[in-house]
């Protein structure tokens, strides 16, 4: 009896475009610029507008999360033949309980964050809602890595 074929081996797709941005914690003044820059690139590449909107919303929430909760992050945006993908790796306090952080309305935000129109506990659920694939890993006192993507088809 041969072993069943392994179906979940995913061939790494060719990266057609990639750009990395740095996001700084507490930098509210520039909060939104990375999402705006990535949106411009996607427009130039002729990506479908509904895909651009979904990824841009996820990116903006992700960027604001870094500004609100982390020290800094590397935000890598890639275009592959079948998807647009983001890997955002931050250095910071991390998330002790991811299950709680994924619940809508759960938040540890400060008044300053709320004054900017964020910090209502919708960030991570909003990223997940706008992604076709979403993964989160976090180590308290080390940092959090988010990986999410939107399919092009």
């Amino acid at each position: 009896m041969f072993p069943a074929p392994v179906l979940d081996v995913i061939m790494e797709e060719e990266i057609l475009y990639s750009e990395t941005f740095r996001i700084h914690g507490n930098d509210f003044e520039h909060g939104g610029e990375v999402a705006a820059a990535v949106k411009s690139v996607m427009k130039q590449l002729g990506i479908r507008s509904d895909v651009i909107r979904r990824l841009s919303i996820a990116n903006f929430e992700c960027e604001m999360n870094v500004i609100m909760y982390a020290d800094e992050a590397e935000f890598e945006f890639s275009v592959l033949p079948s998807q647009v993908r983001v890997v955002c790796k931050d250095r910071g306090q991390g998330i002790p309980d991811i299950g709680l952080a994924m619940q809508e309305g759960w938040s540890t935000a400060t008044q300053q964050m709320r004054e900017r129109g964020f910090g209502a506990g919708l960030g991570l659920p909003n990223i997940k809602r706008n992604s076709d694939k979403f993964e989160i890993e976090s180590t308290p006192s080390v940092g959090t890595t988010l990986r999410y993507s939107v399919n092009l088809e």
Partner: peptide
């Protein structure tokens, strides 16, 4: 704040 314009842009 500036986030209102970024929000309108991405949405």
């Amino acid at each position: 704040s500036i986030q209102s314009v970024h929000t309108a842009d991405v949405a």
